[in-house]
Nucleic acid binder design. Structure first.
Length: 219
DNA sequence: AACTTTCTCAACCGCGCGCAG
DNA sequence: GCTGCGCGCGGTTGAGAAAGT
């Protein structure tokens, strides 16, 4: 892919090769990991006969060679999901990627920085013409992660007796359409490593993915 | 056609965390 | 508690491609 169009790899001062990976290097790394597993990344490079750092090998495997990666472009539905998850989790790209099977943190981060961010900025600039999207831009721009004090866990527990999805529907609606509530978003972010919070997010994602495409278009 | 600007994305860098000794 | 190592993460860079003039 990238190696077909460019190959700037060169050895550096520490005798480690840097830059783009050649097809031969890919083949060596892939066959080593599929045959022997990773072990430690620092040893993979040597055992596979590569002059790369373990870090570089790990990155190449995670972002390009892993067999479970999805190669097709990010869909509109996935883009909506990224936007929603970014509001909940902030720039925790790995956490977002963990909820999007087949996508890597690097891919999502790149997509966010090159497309969505720009889109939101544009929408923000056009807020008079497009109020609903400008709110999204304002949410992203003004969130302050220091000031969160909302008890999300309690809110989640209280929703236990509600109808299935009703809590997540309101959660989604709040995230996607209501007035900005940056404190809440920040608090969600700060709790993202909490198991209960993970369940909440998983359910929300499941709900979001279940929405019909036309509704996604509206969002 | 030639040149410039913008976009895309693979890969690097530096930092922080967890763990073993 | 300190140190070194390995790993994972988010931010950033830079080369090539694509679009615009």
């Amino acid at each position: 892919m990238a190696n077909e169009k460019k190959d700037g790899a060169k050895p550096c001062a520490t005798n480690k090769r840097k830059g783009l990976w050649s097809p031969d290097e890919d083949e060596r790394l892939y066959s080593h990991i599929t045959n022997y597993g990773v072990g430690t990344w620092s040893s993979v490079s040597e055992l596979a006969g590569l002059k790369r750092s373990g870090k570089s090998c790990r990155l190449r495997w995670m972002n390009y060679l892993r067999p479970d990666l999805r190669k097709e472009p990010i869909s509109k539905q996935e883009e909506d999901l990224i936007v929603s998850l970014q509001k909940v989790l902030g720039n925790s790209w790995s956490a977002i990627a963990a909820r999007m099977p087949g996508r890597t943190d690097n891919e999502i981060k790149n997509y966010w920085n090159s497309r969505i961010k720009k889109k939101l900025r544009r929408m923000g600039a056009d807020r008079d013409q497009s109020p609903e999207m400008s709110q999204t831009a304002v949410k992203s721009a003004h969130c302050n992660t220091e000031d969160a004090n909302l008890d999300v866990t309690t809110s989640h527990n209280n929703s236990a007796n509600e109808k299935p999805h009703s809590h997540f529907q309101s959660f989604a609606c709040q995230l996607l359409t209501d007035e900005p509530n940056c404190e809440q978003a920040a608090h969600y972010s700060s709790l993202s490593k909490n198991n209960e919070m993970n369940l909440l997010v998983e359910d929300y994602v499941e709900f979001l993915m279940s929405l019909p495409d036309d509704l996604h278009a509206d969002i």
